[in-house]
């Protein structure tokens, strides 16, 4: 076998316009076209099916036919790099964003980001969420300097559209009536127990949680958020933080040297 034989086989697999790779044959002098097509179909169909399993809400939103066309585009642009298929599809949201026929539906990309985040959370490392008493045990005068450790499942998707409501309705097979797509919604994805949860965050909560995830202190994150979102409700954001299991631990920055 020539050294690059699998390259030719691979190229013919994903491009139906190409002729059969040289040296491919069948018994008793039969033709091999329909035979090779079994590999072609399996490669394309199962990889499209994999994307459909990752993005069921998108498939429902755009319809099966359009979804499979989009998935084919994605396969060409960004074929799966690894046999671990539940990690596939990171670039699918970006494809939706720049695909011309989808311009009237600009919320689709953020719904896809939520779906990808949801699956990340399903497979994330196990960790116990922060015990609220650990936060309660910190002396009041030191709360400024609290920093948090993010739970491995935590993901935040900020959207200029009603991505969380649309995601939730589509996954729940509910009609989308009553949803105002242009209402901004930030989504929080967590896995506090064994089940992935998706929450809609109040305005300001997403940048606040993202600042904490980046390692900012509680005081710095709260201050920055209040500066950019004057109506930000800190107690509610802290409640969500605890209830949703956004973090696993909180610690104090070492006391500053005066």
């Amino acid at each position: 076998m020539r050294p690059a034989a699998q390259s030719l086989f691979a190229a013919a697999l994903i491009d139906p316009e190409r002729p059969l790779p040289e040296g491919i044959t069948a018994a008793r002098g039969k033709a091999a076209d329909r035979r090779f097509a079994v590999y072609r179909n399996t490669v394309t169909v199962t990889r499209i099916d994999a994307l459909a399993a990752i993005f069921p809400a998108i498939e429902r939103l755009v319809g099966q036919e359009a979804f499979r066309s989009l998935a084919r585009l994605h396969l060409v642009e960004e074929p799966p790099a690894s046999p671990v298929l539940f990690e596939y599809g990171a670039g699918f949201a970006a494809l939706l964003e720049r695909t011309e026929p989808l311009r009237p539906y600009p919320y689709l990309a953020d719904v896809a980001r939520l779906e990808r985040a949801w699956l990340d959370a399903v497979h994330a490392e196990d960790a116990l969420p922060l015990d609220p008493t650990a936060l309660g045990a910190i002396p009041q005068e030191r709360l400024n300097d609290v920093i948090f450790t993010a739970h491995p499942a935590t993901r935040i998707v900020e959207s200029r559209f009603a991505a969380v409501s649309i995601f939730s309705a589509s996954r729940g097979h509910r009609p989308l009536d009553g949803i105002r797509p242009q209402e901004p919604e930030d989504g929080l994805v967590t896995r506090p127990g064994h089940t992935v949860e998706v929450r809609r965050l109040a305005p300001g909560a997403a940048p606040f949680l993202k600042a904490l995830i980046r390692g900012e202190t509680l005081a710095a994150a709260a201050s920055h958020t209040l500066a950019s979102h004057p109506g930000f409700a800190l107690p509610a954001a802290l409640s969500v933080l605890l209830e949703a299991g956004v973090f696993t631990a909180c610690t104090l920055l070492p006391a500053r040297m005066e």
């Binding site: 076998m1 034989a5 699998q6 390259s7 086989f9 691979a10 190229a11 697999l13 994903i14 040296g23 590999y39 399996t42 490669v43 199962t46 990889r47 994999a50 074929p79 799966p80 790099a81 690894s82 046999p83 298929l85």
Partner: peptide, 22 residues
């Protein structure tokens, strides 16, 4: 079988020729 190449993972079990080299 083989299932991956530089161009990615094919999610199929692809055949090899039965030669001394393989």
């Amino acid at each position: 079988a083989w299932s991956s190449h530089e161009t990615g993972y094919f999610n199929d079990l692809l055949p090899v020729p039965y030669t001394a080299e393989t």
